[in-house]
Design a protein around this nucleic acid. Structure first.
Lengths: 344, 344
DNA sequence: CTGAAAGCGCTTACAG
DNA sequence: CTGAAAGCGCTTACAG
């Protein structure tokens, strides 16, 4: 393995000059730089990250924490983050809580250790206890939160307005004439106290009340934010009798699960039951799902850039909250309710 | 930030002893160890990874390369890998090729640099050019390949038998009496030369020939391994006229896309068209999809353990190929073809 | 623009 | 079982 000394010797300069030339610092003359680059190339030299981290104090890597990498939103956002980071020469350390409270605790516990291995951290929809927030905010490390989840004092945040997105979805159903609108969301079995479903439920109830309807707990069912979760919640809902004419699912994965169960039960979508979700999942167009689109990749990209800027430019990280727009995308899973059709 | 010197001073021992005590080496007496641990705890001391990597030569991190983290198989496998690695105290550096040839090239190009930042690497379904294989195999770094993708000389491998899995799916349809069996797979638009679809197509053709049928190119359509891809391929297939009585999709995501399009076209599943996939995706049960199940998390876990063992125990990495079993799971998306039904 | 030298914070023979 | 000391391979004031 070639070291910086080998390159210095071959190029006939000091290691300081090699270091400067290779990093593109401009206090190096053209000819010298050329000699160094040639020597480095000849030896196949690559600086040791451990050594430069120790000497330079920068790790050029970022920790990204997600609840579950298997869910569409996080996988899509992480993909964008990964690309942005690697293009900037940064490494991505992945931490997947996997819905385990133990993993969350370990993460907070390790915070002190984490800050020695990364230059910044990105928390996606990560729930934190009040005492954790202080620990995390107290790290000598810039950070950002993405999507809902606990805000961290002094950290910027990139997200959508979950209450508004949910209200938009619900208002769409109301405008079509639906009154018996169910909502599937949340995850009672989850060890971690996520908050996304709370905001979305609030938006649903807000829209109902605007329309003069009182939210009915019997029209609410909980399950994980997955296709299977949507199926379970819908099955539970149907089991209560008096089926809804429409279902607002807190995310597209749940909406797809709902559509599957409805059809297996012999109910047509949208003729018998309309379904709307939130996300604009890759598959939403394929299955004809009406949804409130949110820019997942864009949130990841933006968050990564926000973190990278102060790291690369040495500027201050400004704790701004960026709320990205959502948009209703009407496809084939929603229509006027049957009763209403009859009226015409 | 407390350093090892602070701890040594507070505990009244040398830094060498602190280092040994904290890492649990047993050449430290009980009382001394206790004093060191107390001092470290009091100071909130955590060893600097950069320093111990430089001094010790081990990074305690592993690079995991996936084609697309957004696809079910990779997200599920990575989740298992992440858990296994973190439980062993290893960090996971994520590299997502994102279907970009440039990313693959950069990865191989960076190989020399990569080996200085990780102790091992895991390549999931990563296609390599013949010349790349030598580069990768030549790294002074243990590695493992997971799922199909180019084998690397001297590296172990964890996978399923893709040809057999595809044959199982196809034979299931043949046994039900289907003769017009279409296959959707592959991805002509992908920049990267993946191989999974080739194996699965081979298994499909193998099973057809066993049954005395000649594979018909008109019954084959290509698209990405996603729900949307499955929809596109199925739409293309249907556009050719003479619809098949059954579709074998190369993965469950494609199968779900196929089911969506069939239903939108007014065709019932399975009454008019049977659909079978490969994976046993989280959502397969919810949508009633018959599939050949493969253990995605298990492959990730096993691959991580295989890599960890030699790293932790200092033993040799044995280049074994582990082929995990697959299993046909019959649900509601397959049945006897209509013509056959009439015969009864 | 370039170099000599200190220092980053650990681990590891080596000696006792 | 413990310590003094060298060394891992860089970066960065400082001086010129």
């Amino acid at each position: 393995m070639a070291t910086i000394d080998d390159v210095a010797r071959l190029a006939g300069v000091s290691t300081a000059t090699v270091s400067r030339a290779l990093r593109g610092l401009r206090e190096v003359s053209g000819p010298t730089r050329t000699r160094v680059l040639e020597a480095a190339a000849r030896l196949g030299y690559v600086a040791s990250p451990s050594a430069s981290r120790l000497a330079g104090g920068k790790t050029r890597s970022i920790a990204v924490v997600v609840p579950r990498i298997t869910r569409w939103f996080f996988a899509t956002a992480v993909e964008a983050v990964e690309r942005t980071l690697h293009e900037a020469g940064y490494d991505l350390l992945l931490y997947n809580l996997g819905g385990r409270e133990g993993a969350r605790r370990r993460l907070v516990h390790q915070a002190a250790s984490l800050h020695k291995r990364v230059d910044a951290m990105m928390l996606m929809a990560t729930p934190l206890q009040p005492e954790d927030i202080d620990v995390v905010a107290g790290l000598p490390l810039p950070g950002i939160t993405v999507s809902s989840g606990t805000p961290v004092t002094g950290w910027p945040s990139v997200r959508i307005d979950d209450v508004a997105a949910a209200a938009t979805a619900t208002r769409h159903l109301l405008a079509l004439g639906h009154r018996r609108i169910a909502h599937i969301s949340g995850d009672p079995t989850d060890e971690l106290p996520f908050t996304t479903h709370l905001d979305r439920r609030a938006g649903y109830e807000l829209a109902l009340r605007e329309a003069g309807l009182e939210p009915d707990p019997a029209r609410y069912a909980e399950a994980p934010f997955t296709i299977a979760g949507g199926s379970h919640a819908t099955t539970e809902l149907l089991g209560r009798g008096m089926p809804p004419t429409a279902i607002f699912a807190a995310c597209d994965e749940m909406a797809m699960g709902a559509m599957a169960v409805l059809r297996q039960t012999g109910l047509r979508v949208p003729e018998d039951v309309s379904v709307v979700g939130i996300d604009d999942h890759d598959a939403a167009a394929a299955v004809g799902l009406t949804t409130v689109a949110q820019p997942a990749a864009e949130q990841g990209r933006l968050a990564a850039r926000t973190l990278l800027e102060p790291l690369c430019l040495g500027t201050e990280l400004v704790p701004t909250t960026t709320v990205l727009p959502t948009m209703l995308v009407i496809r084939q899973s929603t229509s006027v309710p049957r009763a209403r059709e009859g009226e015409r």
